[in-house]
Computed example of a mutant assay.
Amino acid sequence: MNIFSKIEKIAYSILLAIVLFGLILGLWDDIYFDVNYAQEDGPVEWGTAIMLFGIFALSLYHLLTLWNTKKILWKVGTFLFVVLFLFAAGEEISWGQRIFGVESSEFFIENNAQGETNLHNLVVGEKKINKIIFSQLLFLVMFLYLLITPILFRKFSWFKDLANKFAVPIVKWHHTIAFIVVTVLVALNPASRKWEVYELAFGAIFFLIFLGPLNKEIFEPEQPK
Results as ranks from 00 to 15, higher is better:
Asn36Phe: 13
Phe143Ala: 13
Thr78Asn: 11
Ala88Met: 11
Leu137Tyr: 11
Ile14Gly: 15
His174Leu: 12
Lys9Val: 05
Leu66Cys: 07
Asn68Cys: 07
Asp34Ala: 12
Ala167His: 02
Gln223Thr: 15
Phe206Tyr: 12
Leu58Gly: 04
Lys172Met: 09
Leu147Asn: 13
Arg193Pro: 03
Tyr145His: 14
Ala167Thr: 01
Glu106Asp: 12
Phe4Val: 01
Trp195Arg: 07
Leu20Pro: 03
Ile3Ser: 09
Ala113Tyr: 12
Arg193Asn: 15
Lys70Trp: 00
Asn189Pro: 05
Leu16Ile: 10
Leu200Thr: 02
Asn215Ile: 07
Gly47Lys: 00
Thr176Asp: 04
Asn164Phe: 03
Leu122Val: 02
Tyr198Met: 12
Leu63Glu: 10
Ala88Val: 02
Leu200Val: 06
Leu66His: 04
Phe79His: 09
Tyr12Val: 05
Gly212Lys: 14
Ser13Val: 11
Ile218Lys: 01
Leu15Ser: 02
Glu40His: 10
Leu185Ala: 14
Val168Pro: 00
Asn36Trp: 14
Val197Gln: 07
Ala11Gln: 07
Phe202Arg: 10
Val171Pro: 11
Asn68Gly: 14
Ile109Pro: 08
His120Asp: 08
Asn2Gln: 12
Val123Thr: 13
Ala89Pro: 01
Val181Ser: 06
Phe156Gly: 10
Ala191Leu: 04
Ile99Glu: 12
Leu86Glu: 02
Phe139Gly: 10
Glu8Gln: 15
Pro43Ala: 15
Val19Asp: 03
Gly90Ala: 08
Val83Pro: 07
Trp195Ile: 12
Val19Phe: 03
Trp195Glu: 13
Arg98Gln: 14
Ile218Val: 06
Trp74Lys: 00
Asn130Asp: 11
Ala88Ser: 05
Phe100His: 13
Phe100Ser: 07
Ser13Glu: 10
Leu80Lys: 04
Arg98Pro: 03
Ile133Asn: 01
Lys160Trp: 05
Ile129Asp: 03
Asn118Trp: 00
Leu144Asp: 10
Asp161Lys: 12
Ala11Asn: 08
Pro43Cys: 08
Lys131Arg: 11
Val168Thr: 12
Val44Glu: 01
Asp161Pro: 04
Lys225Gly: 06
Trp67Ala: 06
Glu110His: 04
Ser5Trp: 05
Phe4Ile: 02
Glu217Arg: 04
Phe139Cys: 09
Trp28Cys: 08
Ile109Ala: 11
Glu110Leu: 09
Ala187Arg: 09
Gly77Met: 01
Asp29Lys: 05
Ala89Gly: 05
Gly115Gln: 03
Phe4Arg: 02
Gly125Ala: 10
Leu60Tyr: 08
Glu126Gly: 13
Val168Met: 07
